[in-house]
């Protein structure tokens, strides 16, 4: 299980209000939320990001409220993986639970530049920077976490494991 795409780089302490401002929270529809993803920090992001692209953050990515709308907006925008130095705890859970893979890797988060072509292998935790010809190693996702992502989120994967999907 792997993904590849172009890197969109952001800084430290990207909070959930930046990811999706409270004024757009009257819906949980991923397509609508995606249109406003990162709008307060980069209003061109939603127009530029393409399916499969990868978001890079610094320290404490996703801090702030526990709103599940934040990872939903990122995933809805087409982002296939978020790599950051560190994530805020509840964002971390929420991302997996709605089926957005995220990886903590300080080296990758620091060395990857905006626009680099990136490939991530979730099984091995290997992150390849195709543009720079570098490789970074993150802790691989354990099988049942990969199953959550594969299944499209926690609820969907529970359904799948019961043979209902």
């Amino acid at each position: 299980m792997s993904t590849s795409g172009r890197a969109f780089k952001f800084g430290d302490n990207i909070d959930t209000d930046v990811i999706i401002p409270a004024r757009y929270l009257s819906t949980a529809d991923p397509e609508i939320l995606a249109k406003y993803c990162m709008i307060d920090i980069d209003d061109t992001f939603a127009g530029k990001v393409q399916k499969g692209d990868i978001m890079i953050g610094g320290r404490n990515f996703g801090c702030g409220s526990s709103r599940e709308h934040a990872p939903i907006a990122i995933k809805g925008a087409g982002v296939s993986c978020v790599i950051a130095e560190t994530f805020a705890r509840i964002f971390y859970r929420n991302a997996f639970n709605i089926g957005l893979p995220i990886i903590e890797c300080a080296e990758a988060a620091r060395k990857i530049a905006d626009g680099d072509e990136i490939r991530v292998d979730f099984e091995s935790g290997k992150i390849e920077n195709i543009t720079k010809g570098e490789t970074y190693q993150a802790q691989p996702l354990p099988p049942f976490m990969r199953d959550i992502i594969d299944g499209g989120g926690l609820i969907a994967s529970i359904k799948k494991s019961r043979g209902e999907a």
């Binding site: 599940e68 859970r93 929420n94 989120g153 926690l154 529970i158």
Partner: peptide, 10 residues
């Protein structure tokens, strides 16, 4: 520990 609503559902 505290978790989100999806965790609670699961």
């Amino acid at each position: 520990t505290g978790i989100g609503s999806t965790d609670m559902a699961a």
